[in-house]
Amino acid sequence: MQSSYDTISKDEVMEVYPKVAETIAEALGRDLDDVKLTAPLMEGLDAESIDFLDIVFRLERQFKVKIPRGKIAEDARGTLSEEEFEQKGYLTQAGLKRLQEHLSEVSPERFRSPIKARDIPRLFTVETFCKLVVRAQKQATKSPDG
């Protein structure tokens, strides 16, 4: 079972997906058709690390939400401490389990242990960004001042 903190329904994802896809297509110079929900950004859509900054910036404006920089990595760790999550740059077993829960949209065979903490962004798919937006929207309703 996922923690309630993380529970995001497929409907919620699909509600934001069209605009997220449009935003990502624009940021990466791709056709909308390429930006499938399951497409990995780095390996599938040729994003590099700075593109994530651009995408987050555009999503913030598009959805009028605030996504603090580094939010994805922080969310991925969840309630685990840094030491519980990673050791010497590699994810611990607990870390890997937590990450897999968090990135439930990423197909299981892509979580090949050992995973370096810095390689986590390689796993991100279009759906990861949809969930990021949904979470930010929920956050905003919790604290209206953002």
Binding site: I50, L53, D54, F57, E60, K66, R69
Partner: peptide, 11 residues
């Protein structure tokens, strides 16, 4: 700043 200027500006 972060919500107003595109992060790719310098590049």
């Amino acid at each position: 700043l972060a919500t107003t200027v595109n992060p790719m500006w310098l590049l």
